[in-house]
Write a protein that binds this DNA or RNA. Structure first.
Length: 271
DNA sequence: ATTGTATGTCCAA
DNA sequence: TGGACCTACAATG
């Protein structure tokens, strides 16, 4: 589901299935119809992602910007494409496959300048080779905001969502409330390196897995509990269940209108 | 069949 | 700060 790894996976797939060839573009639902008509039959030059944003470039002056939001979906299948059913915002039809976009927060035709401006507002994306983690450290190490806030701030880190946030804090034994300025450099470096590995793994496997083999309940004779995100996790959505490392009950609270999960024993507060 | 909930973001009040 | 967005899936009956 849509954290950064999902968008990078889609970008890679769309590049492979549609790029360098003309694509049919339509909007059966109608909300993207005017733009779709302008693009229909154009060559999709390139598909790429930055954080949770997906960009389809058509030649030199047109870009389709997609943000899935909370429940947007993109599905790709071999041709032939069936008759559209329900609210289908955008359909791409290539030479071998079609792709259907439903329920996105954003699907809009913009200029390359607008795309650049949008990306300029985004933070560093652990999945992009051009990411500059030093810029993240500059922000984090000067901030009084809690790590739980900073990790989800797309102007700081692009692509990290609620699952990666909770799991990263757990894996590094960090209290979600710890102010960024109290984080030490070595821990930050380890966190960034970990994000790169975890999120690349997420792209590859199309799910978020964060549990080390030695903590995997399936290896301990316990029932595997895959959650809706599809993978194995330490704390995300495990409120009240025993911590996979120490057995303490996993805690849950609302933090800035989002669900936050942590183990109070493995992630102790300093105060 | 129906209800509840979610991995995100924006905007009006 | 609460609602809108309006999909997919799990849980419930």
């Amino acid at each position: 589901m849509p954290e950064g790894h999902t968008l990078h996976r889609l970008a890679r797939l769309h590049q492979k299935l549609f790029a360098r060839r003309p694509v049919g573009v339509s909007s059966p639902q109608g909300r993207f119809a005017e733009s779709a008509a302008l693009l229909d039959g154009a060559v999709l030059t390139r598909a790429e992602a930055h954080g949770k944003h997906l960009f389809h470039r058509y030649g030199r002056d047109r870009v389709v910007h997609v943000h899935l939001g909370l429940y947007g979906t993109f599905v790709e299948h071999p041709l032939p494409a069936p008759e559209p059913v329900g609210q289908l915002r955008m359909r791409l039809v290539g030479e071998t496959h079609y792709a259907d976009l439903r329920g996105p927060t954003a699907c809009e035709l913009i200029t390359p300048a607008e795309a650049r401006a949008l990306r300029a507002r985004l933070g560093e994306d652990p999945l992009r080779p051009d990411a500059e983690p030093e810029r993240v450290w500059e922000r984090v190490s000067r901030s009084r905001s809690p790590l739980a806030t900073l990790l989800m701030d797309q102007k700081v880190l692009a692509g990290v969502g609620n699952v990666y946030r909770a799991e990263l804090l757990f894996r590094h034994g960090l209290d979600p409330q710890l102010p960024g300025r109290e984080l030490d450099r070595a821990t930050w470096d380890a966190m960034w390196a970990d994000l790169v590995v975890l999120m690349r793994d997420g792209v590859r496997r199309n799910r978020i897995d964060t549990v080390a083999p030695e903590h995997d309940p399936r290896r301990r004779g316990q029932a595997a509990r895959r959650d809706r995100h599809g993978g194995e996790v330490y704390v995300y959505r495990r409120a009240g269940l025993p911590c996979l490392v120490c057995g303490t009950g996993v805690r849950h609270r609302e933090h800035a209108a989002r669900n936050l999960f942590w183990c109070p024993a493995c992630q102790p507060s300093r105060g």
